[in-house]
């Protein structure tokens, strides 16, 4: 276990090192900081003095070490646009993204496990076939398009007058298929409850939850089909195994066999894939937050790109890198704990 921990830690440090070098190279090559600081009228000799004082003439390696030293202490420089420490800006935007990811994960877990398990138990039923068909359609719709369709249906509303309105059934169908469009589609709303530090929550008020619903569904929509299919495939494999047949032969109730015996082993690969997908989720928050103008890290990153706010871009990359490395490490650790047969150190057992 200790050997595995050290190995994972070395891996994590290596990855962070690579990211920091890349991030620093970006910072080093984009624009001239002196140009950003002084006006047009400052003479070249003056600029050279500033450059010398800031250490911009030092070799790449010296500058990198300085950058890394500051970064480790949490100093990523000042955002050009917000005129405050970049880390501070990110900390302010982080809770919104985390709440969005949390809500989406909740939707995914609550829906994918029952649907996946059911369609593995009864693969030929109408319900299972519907969800298998729906899941391939779901995979084929990009997340921002789901978001746009949701906005059209639930925030703007659609009016259907396709059926003849003079007949009773036509009028009923028309009104049944039309939607009101009163869901908010923009931002987090004003009814936020302050929790601690930079964290204002959407989850405490009805209005806050209403603002969260559409973005969370959009974000969940991209992962949900993947997980339904994965859980179904793994569950079907597990149901074929000897120990499940044995449990069934012993006369244990089917419910217990499915949800206690089989589900446990189904979830093992789901955990690994889930860990990788958290990373993908961070990427998709950029898209979801752009559509819904959700004031989280993703939207902040896109704004930073458009404003060429380099310190903010670099710190976002570093923070996202940390998130990825930490989640991957935690997932590996969990996997090692729940599955004792896994060879953690890579040595033959």
């Amino acid at each position: 276990m200790i050997a595995f921990l050290i190995k994972r830690l070395m891996h994590a440090i290596l990855v962070m090192f690579v990211i920091s070098v890349l991030a620093f190279a970006i910072q080093d090559n984009l624009g001239d900081p002196v140009q950003q600081m002084v006006g047009q009228s400052v003479p070249e000799s003056e600029r050279e003095a500033i450059r010398e004082r800031l250490g911009l003439n030092d070799p790449f390696l010296v500058q990198y070490v300085r950058f890394a030293k500051n970064a480790v202490q949490g100093d990523f420089g000042y955002s050009y646009f917000y005129r405050e420490p970049a880390l501070e800006v990110i900390a302010r935007h982080l809770p919104a993204t985390l709440e969005l990811v949390f809500a989406a994960t909740l939707i995914i877990v609550l829906l994918s496990v029952p649907i996946g398990v059911y369609s593995a138990i009864k693969p030929r039923s109408l319900f299972s076939r519907f969800f298998m068909g729906a899941s391939i359609i779901g995979i084929s719709i990009p997340v921002f398009l789901t978001a746009i369709v949701l906005i059209q249906i639930f925030a703007i509303g659609i009016t259907i007058n396709f059926f003849p309105p003079e007949t009773a059934w036509g009028a009923w169908l028309n009104s049944a298929l039309s939607t009101q469009g009163n869901m908010p589609s923009f931002g987090r709303g004003h009814d936020l409850v302050h929790v601690a530090g930079h964290w204002d929550t959407n989850l405490a008020t009805w209005d806050g939850i209403k603002h969260l619903v559409l973005p969370a569904i959009s974000l969940a929509s991209i992962m949900l089909p993947l997980f339904i299919r994965l859980i179904r495939a793994e569950m079907m494999e597990v149901l074929q195994s000897e120990y499940v047949k044995y449990a069934r032969a012993k006369g244990i109730s089917m419910r217990r066999v499915y949800f206690v015996h089989a589900l446990k082993n189904t979830m093992l690969p789901v955990i690994t894939v889930g860990g990788v997908q958290i990373g993908t989720m961070v990427a998709y928050t950029i898209l979801t937050e752009t559509v819904f103008q959700w004031p989280g890290m993703g939207l902040m990153f896109l704004d930073a790109i458009n404003r060429a706010d380099i310190p903010l871009i670099v710190s976002y990359l570093m923070i996202v890198g940390v998130i990825f490395v930490v989640t991957n490490t935690i997932v590996d650790l969990i996997y090692g704990f729940v599955n004792p047969t896994v060879k953690l150190t890579g040595k033959p057992a």
């Binding site: 990855v15 690579v18 970006i26 090559n29 984009l30 990788v276 990373g279 993908t280 961070v282 990427a283 998709y284 950029i286 790109i305 060429a308 380099i310 871009i313 990359l317 996202v320 990825f324 490395v325 991957n328």
Partner: peptide, 22 residues
């Protein structure tokens, strides 16, 4: 492994952003 752990879309967005800014 490293590249995949970052999700391909994320890598594409970052590279695109950096190239565009440069």
């Amino acid at each position: 492994d490293i590249q995949l752990s970052f999700s391909t879309l994320m890598v594409a967005i970052v590279v695109g952003a950096v190239v565009k800014a440069t």
